[in-house]
Amino acid sequence: MSVIEIQDLSLVYRTGKEEFLALDHINATIGSGEFVTIVGSSGCGKSTLLSVLDGLNKPTGGRVLIDGAPINGTGPERAVVFQQYTLFPWMSARDNVAFGIKQVRKGIPAKQAEAVSEEYLEKVGLSEFMHKLPGELSGGMQQRVAIARALAVDPKILLMDEPFGAIDARTRVTLQEMLLDLWSQDEEKKTVVFVTHDIDEALLLSDRIFFMEPKRIKDVIDVTIPRPRAKETLYNQEDSNKLLNRLLGLFYQDVAEQIGNEEVVL
């Protein structure tokens, strides 16, 4: 629902006297209602880029505009789903979601927040588990709760940092399809930025793929596969195989470039 403009964005990490350039003059625009994935090998700065978008990191150069206004820190129009351990372990699933709602809709009666929370937990298929603590839920269920919490505040932008990275392959497919379902249900689709290192995931989910090499976006790929998409039929099409090969090519080229000077963990 919102346009994100990344203008000349740079980020330098300082630890003591050492400086490390994590992002180097990045420019990109993400359209309203677009689903963009950021793909790249570990350490290429994709999570750093997302952390600037969600407001946890301040850029050292350039800026990020949302609907034309520069961002300053975190904001209620953006919701974030991290990889792991992002639920508060002392709150039940319902309370976790309701907590998120209460922060954005100040003064909402507790009962109402709980009702909204239950509604979203139902959407992610966890009605039966709403009174469980995160420690009593599986990793996949915990991510469902995290997604429910992010969606329950009805954000314009959804930022996801490898949300299914720690989930087993089978559950991951279910969660990917659930996410696509929830995203396409809205009349005015949310703008999604989704970080992953899984090429299949990127092809299944996104409208465009930003392929990152260290510090910058190397290539932008339009994913022309028609929606609705399903994992099992994804590679039945000519297009998808071409895209897959292109992405794999980028990946290995990137790795080959790096192996000369430093070790790379994919």
Partner: peptide, 24 residues
């Protein structure tokens, strides 16, 4: 990760201290 989660949920300082750090 707990602090980051609280931050992206836009909590204010009292909430951060009494509803997040203290129970944690």
């Amino acid at each position: 990760r707990i602090i980051d989660t609280a931050k992206v949920l836009n909590v204010n300082t009292p909430t951060m201290i009494f509803r997040v750090i203290l129970p944690y």
